[in-house]
């Protein structure tokens, strides 16, 4: 077990989706602790509830029952706007399909979360530049997403995720759309974030090679943890 105090505590977490008359149990009484600085990989077959668990921990979905405590806050108890603030300050998102805003340059995409802060334009510029340097894209700041390769797009997305300096970085199959070379770049950056910057990284993946970058791996099967 990790020595540090857990940054994420999931207790008896259950998520049921209602689809018309049918109830789909996506997560069933999950218990999980994640320590600060861990690089946790979440594996399991399609439909096993990986994304759902990630969404709840990241505060974009709510549990049906059970608690999800992140940094000692029960995020299920926050209202919509508190949760939005909390996400902005504490969570960085990386998606499978990059999800950059097509009309904004790499720099502007990374700057986006900072528009919600009180930072001056100068401070924003400094932070964005640092984040882009960290992912090795200082020379692509003015490029639009369509002028970048998939791997570069995903690195911009990682820069966007860490520009607010959040404790938690969640990534849902971040290498799913990438060739193996680009995937290795992305995974390397995520590993450095957890190892050097003490960020907690939670990554969903199908790929055992990707999972090997993590410090710990857990498996989901039909909404339950199997180890």
């Amino acid at each position: 077990m990790p020595v540090a105090a857990p940054i994420v505590q999931v207790r008896e977490l259950t998520k049921v989706f209602r689809q018309g008359e049918i109830n789909v149990t996506a997560l069933h009484r999950i218990n999980l602790e994640i320590a600060a600085g861990e690089f946790l990989t979440l594996m399991g077959p399609s439909g096993s509830g990986k994304s759902t668990l990630l969404h709840i921990i990241a505060g974009i979905d709510r549990p049906t029952s059970g608690d999800c405590i992140v940094q000692e806050r029960n995020i299920g108890a926050l209202n919509e706007s508190e949760l939005a603030d909390w996400r902005n300050q504490n969570v960085g998102f990386v998606f499978q399909t990059f999800n950059l805003i097509p009309v904004l340059s790499a720099f502007e995409n990374v700057e986006l979360p900072l528009l919600l802060t009180q930072l001056s334009a100068r401070d924003r510029r400094r932070q964005v530049t640092t984040a882009l340097e960290l992912v090795g894209l200082s020379d692509r700041m003015k490029h639009l997403p369509r002028q970048l390769s998939g791997g570069q797009e995903q690195r911009v997305a990682i820069a966007r995720a860490l520009v607010t300096d959040p404790q938690l970085i969640v990534a849902d199959e971040p290498t799913g759309n990438l060739d193996s070379h680009s995937a290795a770049d992305v995974l390397d950056i995520l590993r450095r974030l957890s190892r050097d910057a003490r960020k907690t990284v939670i990554m969903v993946t199908h790929d055992p090679k990707a999972a090997a970058y993590g410090t710990r791996s857990i498996h989901l099967e039909k909404g339950e943890l199997t180890n």
Binding site: E80, A84, D85, R87, N88, Q89, F95, N99, L112, P113
Partner: peptide, 14 residues
């Protein structure tokens, strides 16, 4: 809608 969801995830409010 997808982009708006991303913005929401980043912390923008409704």
């Amino acid at each position: 809608l997808r982009e708006l969801s991303v913005l929401k995830a980043l912390g923008f409010r409704r």
